[in-house]
Amino acid sequence: MSLIVVQNLSKTYETEGVKTPVLHEVTFEIKKGEFISIMGPSGSGKSTLMQILGMLDRPTEGTYLLEGKNITQYSDDEMAKIRNKKIGFVFQSFNLLPRTSVYENTELPLLYDEDHLEMNNEKKITKALAAVDMSHRTNYLSNQLSGGEKQRVAIARALVNNPEVIFADEPTGNLDSKSGLAVMRILQQLNDVGHTVILVTHETYTARHAKRILNMLDGRIVSDELVKDRLIADGEGELLK
């Protein structure tokens, strides 16, 4: 069974009576354990699509099934709960809480998870920070970190609740190539242990770290193909690119 099924999905923004159609009848499926890059020029609707898939926004038309369930039936609070349990986000601009420790930033999704006992939190946070190699900065404040470190903490936050899917919208956009590569390596490792990863990028090079690439143009999917010579972000050789 597919993790994500999208059929004829359309999105039109409406601000003060002005309608901006952004997505036009998009249809595709994503299976559990995939690593997908969504590519396309600026304004093509990548972020919009990701936000709908991440349940931060609702489609105007069409259906979106997550694990076989139509999410358009869910209330805002139910959507919040699904975001909390099944989805992790990584954004281009890190989005850490300012003047707040690395530990507390990573803890954030756990706070809103009322089904879990708090005593496991510390273990989960430690594990998540270890996975992004940030254990040594646990008690630093977010503003004392470099960009690459911030993004790694953001990834730790995204995976601390052990989500089904991790969405990353241009996670390397604000980073130098070395830090960017570190982020890609972490995303690949997460995918290796079973997380589905959906990456939005407009760089072909970054996109080729995925297993499959969706190409978008003007709110439509124009191509959908598997990556033949996938890049693996593990070796020194890649750093010298």
């Binding site: 609070d77 709960k81 909390n84 809103y112």
Partner: peptide
């Protein structure tokens, strides 16, 4: 605003 957005993204409800 951004903090609110972030909290909501990770699972905070409107009443939270």
């Amino acid at each position: 605003t951004f903090e609110i957005g972030l909290r909501k993204a990770v699972g905070a409800t409107a009443s939270d």
